[in-house]
Nucleic acid binder design. Structure first.
Lengths: 192, 192
DNA sequence: CCATCAGGTTAACGACCGCTAACCGCCTTG
DNA sequence: CAAGGCGGTTAGCGGTCGTTAACCTGATGG
């Protein structure tokens, strides 16, 4: 667990505020002037840090997809050979992500089509690989259902876990354990 | 079950295509010319049927919210006194909706903030009432969890059921029964 | 101590978008 | 058969948006 203590760079500030604004009002609904204002500079000043508005969205989506996949792969390494523990670990990791980076989780399946084809393909590939991690372990644990069904199940559980943006009043840890229970309950129904 | 055989009106064509386009590219990402082109007329021709682009989105969102709530209330009437059957009925109804009106389900929690305050409040109120239907029956069936938890659970299951936009290759009926099983599995975890 | 450069500023341009204006043909109906 | 309105059309206006141009300033380092 490496925690950063140094101040965020201007680039990072911009990305964070852009993520929040894009999630709130949609990519096309946010102007560069607003993003600039959110970090205390004015619109065109952003172009010292990014070649364009598209590039900000691209970096956000590629970034989150890479971090999700990396985290998933790390967990596969750690819990190799114990599918049950691994699935639990993947669920916990995804929940942490959904609760910590709410705007990014929102963007991640909402604004994908606003990317240039190159970036979009890259993001989709990363997402597919991440999903594949889940599908593999789900199929080890529940061999009965056909692959398409396992895939759809994982998708649906993602939808369940990512539903968190809408909610507030339950507290972080309570929400965490609730989502964990619900996800396990959903997967469990594959065995019955 | 009342099925319509008469041809759709121009208004209905417009709403359907607008829903599809809004879901695909976002409200701000679609121009009125595109919507017009999708129904074979050109941009400004739409203003013979709607006072503006906002009004199309408003009618779509209010419409879907009302239909969801009406269907839910009907099911509450039909299955009154049998919470288990009622929850099953609500789940089935929501699944039908999610599979039949995919673009609308997408819009419904994605573009709500693009509405004028009046319409937004109305939609939110309808959504809240619909959610309340679910929360009531869930609390009857699983009295242990506090209300906030029941509410978050219903939200999460909505996320699960609405995840269907992303998927295709499983076939309508297979998807239907899978989602039903997953939703019951998630709710079931509240009793353990 | 001056040159450089990173990181800002404001002005402005061209494209696009929602919407209005003005016009028109066709069906309906008294 | 004339009148009117329904449902279109094209032209164009005003505003906004992403981006570029030109300029400025304070810190840095040889």
């Amino acid at each position: 667990m490496s925690t950063r203590t140094d101040a965020p760079t201007r680039r990072e500030q911009i990305l964070k505020e852009a993520a929040r604004l894009f999630a709130e009002r949609g990519f096309h609904g946010v102007g560069v002037d607003e993003i600039g204002a959110a970090v205390g500079i004015s619109g065109p000043g952003l172009y010292r840090h990014f070649p364009g508005k598209d590039a900000m969205l691209a970096e956000l989506l590629v970034g989150i997809s890479e971090r999700l996949l990396d985290g998933g792969r790390r967990r596969v390494q750690e819990a190799a050979g114990d599918p049950e523990a691994l699935l639990g670990s993947l669920i916990d990791g995804h929940i942490d992500f959904a609760l910590d980076d709410r705007p990014l989780i929102t963007l991640h399946d909402r604004e994908l089509d606003r990317l240039r084809e190159t970036d979009r393909k890259r993001v989709r590939q990363l997402q597919r690989q991440y999903l594949e991690l889940w599908v593999t372990v789900v199929r080890e644990l529940y061999p009965a259902p056909p692959e398409a069904e396992a895939r759809a199940t994982v998708h649906a559980v993602f939808g369940l876990l990512n539903s968190t943006p809408h909610i507030g009043l339950l507290g972080r840890t309570a929400m965490e354990s609730l989502l964990r229970r619900l996800a396990h309950g959903a997967f469990g129904s594959l065995g019955a």
